[in-house]
Amino acid sequence: MPQNFKTEFLHPRHWMTWTGVTILWLLVQLPYPLLVKLGRTLGRLARPFLKKREYVANRNLELCFPAMDNFSRSTLLTDNFTSLGMALIETGMAWFWSDARLRKHFDVEGFANLQRALDQGKGVMVVGVHFMSLELGGRVMGLCRPMMATYRPHNNPVLEFVQTRGRLRSNKAMIDRRNLKGLVSALKKGEAVWFAPDQDYGRKGSVFAPFFAMQNTATTNGTFVISRLSGAAMLTITMIRRKDNAGYCLYIGDMLTDYPSGNEQAAAGYINKKIEDEILRAPEQYLWVHRRFKTRPLGEAASY
């Protein structure tokens, strides 16, 4: 997790990356209404070049919402790609905007829920969801209350440097998602740590539980394990882009006091249901391009 600049980042092999980062920095200096138009346009223009991702997103929608008619699904898919374009812009906003500029564009609902959870002194596991505005949501969460977050280090060292510096502008630390010991230790010290269990991390360390209409969805048992080892409070935090493009709202949910901590299978189903509820706030903004149903029970046909 490099936080300090290294001269090796100036090697010619990184020049294209620096060019992209510079262009992104320049773009996000524009007024927010123009950024919204630009982001949505980028999403529409990119769609023809992202056929594999389009297929995955459409297939996910078919599997999750089998009763949805073709027109509604097509509309949702179109909106999802415009949201995907905004995700690039929002990443630049998260990394490069000042605190003062960010504060003009978001509201928070439920901050008292987070404070009550922290007051218990056992740490707080923040259950996150992979919305398109996730990067911006992390920065905004830190402005409300500096946190830690689990993540997968970027393979590109320059992007790892840039994203880490951006994320730590308002947060405390990033924890490699494989570092279970470090994550649990932070929670036991009373920290709030963001953890997103809504992706397919493979068969190992997962159980199959319902997710929308899919009855057997590989669901990480990380939430269950971390909860048992740390004894931390749990709640959801979700960042949603308002439909009128008038900024964002950070929703902080109630503490999940009824989490079934004694049953791994029940716990996986419980967390998936909470994630469903968050997705339904703005389904067009969810990361449907991820192959959520890649891992199947033995003997079951592939989803894609």
Rank of each mutant, 00 (worst) to 15 (best):
D277M: 13
A149P: 03
R228W: 05
E90C: 11
I237M: 15
W15S: 14
N60H: 11
R13E: 13
V127T: 12
R152Q: 14
N171M: 01
G222T: 05
L77Y: 03
V28Y: 01
K273V: 01
W18N: 13
V207C: 06
Q285D: 10
V158G: 07
S230Y: 09
M93Q: 04
A94M: 08
L84Y: 04
P260H: 07
G142N: 02
N272D: 03
M68T: 03
W95G: 02
K189S: 13
L187Q: 03
Y32Q: 11
F5G: 06
P12N: 08
G202V: 06
T217Y: 00
M174L: 15
T238D: 09
T41Q: 03
P157Y: 07
Y55V: 11
S72K: 08
L118D: 02
W288P: 08
R101Q: 14
K104A: 09
A282L: 06
E109P: 00
T91M: 14
L88P: 06
A233R: 12
P260V: 11
A149H: 02
A117Q: 07
E191K: 11
R103K: 15
A266S: 10
I240Q: 02
A301D: 12
T257E: 09
Q285Y: 08
L280F: 03
T17M: 07
G128P: 06
M239W: 02
L114K: 05
G142S: 05
R291H: 12
K122F: 01
Q199I: 05
Y251L: 12
R13S: 14
H130W: 13
K104Q: 15
R169N: 05
A302K: 14
P153L: 12
R292T: 08
K51I: 08
L30T: 10
I237T: 11
T19P: 03
V289W: 00
L287C: 10
R296Y: 04
V184Y: 05
L50H: 01
E109G: 06
S185T: 14
D198K: 00
G253D: 09
R281W: 05
D258M: 09
V207H: 04
L168G: 14
F49A: 14
K51Q: 15
L42S: 05
L35Y: 00
I275W: 10
Y286F: 13
T220C: 01
V36D: 00
S170V: 01
N4L: 12
E264L: 11
G138F: 04
L42D: 10
M141R: 03
I23Y: 04
T257D: 11
D198F: 06
Y248G: 09
K52M: 08
W25P: 02
G39Y: 00
R152I: 13
L76Y: 07
G269A: 14
T19H: 06
T7Y: 07
E191M: 10
P297Q: 07
K204I: 06
A173T: 10
A267N: 09
G247Y: 01
